[in-house]
Write a protein that binds this DNA or RNA. Structure first.
Lengths: 165, 165
DNA sequence: CACAGTTACTGCGCGACGCAGCTAATGTAT
DNA sequence: ATACATTAGCTGCGTCGCGCAGTAACTGTG
């Protein structure tokens, strides 16, 4: 007899143990390749992604999202400004703050770098029904929330270094 | 009248334009947090992921998968050996080659670092039917292949630097 | 048996990051 | 109003990871 829970467990194991990690590895690798193509560092493309996803932000907010100190974020912004990818805009309401905004040049550069993948992905999604697309969207939403929660949890948790005799 | 293709286009746009990039950003951020927790660099955790996913490999193969030169890969392996995460095993058949194998210590360290996320993800997947899980698995498979193909394509393509007057 | 090709490893310089300290601007209390 | 604490962003300095070039050991081939 084959228990129904057995196949489900196999599906779960395949998903969390192979498919998702395998994709995550490739995402990191792709970001690295794109960074080289654009002539900037990995951190810089991560910053551009953050700007593209969440809109303009202050250096402090960017520092949090890319796990950098505000000092290093300053240097990163310097590089991106020098590469014509972002712009510094003073905040009229709070003259300490500065808003970082992607330039059209920057948007085009990252856009063209990922155009191939987007093309392929849209192509792949052609094999899925609307119902299946909604399922994918639902999963991506939960995954995004869970990953964000885990990031926050690990950031606030103490370091484990030195806990292995 | 509402055209049926209109909603589908919205689903596709949401997926490739927001959900997937949003998750990718968080994956990178999580890797960075985990790296700090383990006291190693981002590249080092990427290497550990590669070893966990594809099994033991030579320094040259690892260098390709993490986008490093063989020289930098040597140093990376030195760090991981010093951190008790991997082991160098000489290849008896070809005495030039060396096999890199994760230690139990290393497997436990990365495993515990990601245990929380795996827990959350398995929990999330509880809301999906077996059929939906198969859909997710199918998509992850295509995404993995497409991303890998795009990585190969960009790696073999010429640089775009200097193409913006 | 010589010679090209492969694999992994080492000096050196460059660049990205963290840390600490700094200035300017804002908020708050007396 | 004035003094103090807080927040925001920006700079020297040391550290460390990386690419480049060159080296040594080993393998396959003519």
């Amino acid at each position: 007899m084959t228990k129904p829970n057995q196949e489900r467990e196999a599906l779960l194991a395949e998903l969390v143990g192979a498919s998702v990690p395998g994709w995550a590895i490739l995402v990191v690798q792709l970001n690295n390749v794109v960074a080289r193509r654009l002539g900037v560092s990995d951190t810089d493309v991560q910053c551009l992604h953050v700007l593209g996803r969440y809109g303009p932000a202050t250096p402090g907010e960017l520092a949090k999202r890319v796990n950098l100190t505000t000092g290093s974020a300053s240097r990163m912004i310097d590089r991106l400004v020098a590469a014509d990818c972002v712009r510094r805009i003073p905040d009229p309401g709070d003259r300490r703050r500065v808003l970082i905004e992607p330039t059209q040049e920057g948007l085009d550069r990252v856009g063209s770098a990922y155009a191939g993948l987007i093309e392929r992905t849209r192509d792949d999604l052609g094999d899925f029904t609307d119902e299946e697309l909604r399922t994918l969207l639902r999963f991506m939403g939960t995954a995004e929330r869970s990953t964000a929660a885990e990031v926050r949890h690990l950031q606030s948790a103490p370091d484990d270094r030195g806990a292995h005799p």
